[in-house]
Design a protein around this nucleic acid. Sequence first.
DNA 1: GATAACCTTAAAGTCAACTATAAGGTCAAG
DNA 2: CTTGACCTTATAGTTGACTTTAAGGTTATC
Lengths: 135, 135
Amino acid sequence: MQTLSIGELSELSGVANQAIRFYEKEKLMPAPQRTEANYRRYPMDAVARLQFIVHAKQWGFTLDEIRELLILQDANGDRAQAKRIAEEKLHKIREQIKHLSRIEAVLSRTLAECTGEGPMQEGCPIVEAIAGQEE
Amino acid sequence: MQTLSIGELSELSGVANQAIRFYEKEKLMPAPQRTEANYRRYPMDAVARLQFIVHAKQWGFTLDEIRELLILQDANGDRAQAKRIAEEKLHKIREQIKHLSRIEAVLSRTLAECTGEGPMQEGCPIVEAIAGQEE
DNA sequence: GATAACCTTAAAGTCAACTATAAGGTCAAG
DNA sequence: CTTGACCTTATAGTTGACTTTAAGGTTATC
């Protein structure tokens, strides 16, 4: 079976060498076999594992959460737990969207009111909106 | 005119002493007067300034951006510049909402498909969705 | 006059997720 | 047999917004 050096794995996955070593230290990537000269040698499926990590990051999962998912996979664990992790993430994402939407609403309303003319003192709508908001 | 110690200002504003000193170092709060014993003494309106900072942070402004706004206010500067800062922020917020909404859509669709039953190996929809997505 | 509750500074630590640097070992090409 | 491209480890630096720690000075109270 063909194996990969860390540089080759980096090329194929688009993840920097140092990041790969970092993931190993953080237990996201398993420690690979070594050559006589102590060089890392990865199996081909290491590429897919790295890409899983990259994608999960794009989805907003933290490395801690990704590690949980990977441990479940490695242990051939319970699908219900993976679902729970994803549900928590979905909940957090919806909260973030809500928070940002509230800000978006107030800020765009404020900007619509603001001509952008005149000096700051006495009643710049932007400053007043920030200063005067409650929550 | 009544003045405040840093502890009193902290109480009234809800901002920790060390954070207040940090804002001073970062030029968000002006250096206040000192007593003979070198204790800081704040004017009452320091409370409002701190609350402006807190609110702006809640809106997602960074300290750099808040400093810009405060400098504009202090200099009684151009309202157009404040508007520009707010417009940039609004743009960034809308980008974030778009990004999160895409994730939300895929994740909620995936979760709807997932019964949460069975083992991880071979076809857990969550894992497959993360592993197989393009972008 | 001692104890506690304040205040002062400077420097280091925190979190996440790496990146960069230093100091060296290995391997293929010419 | 040397040059350069790769690999190794450990340690330090990055960003943002602080918090924590250390080591001390001041003020109010008993």
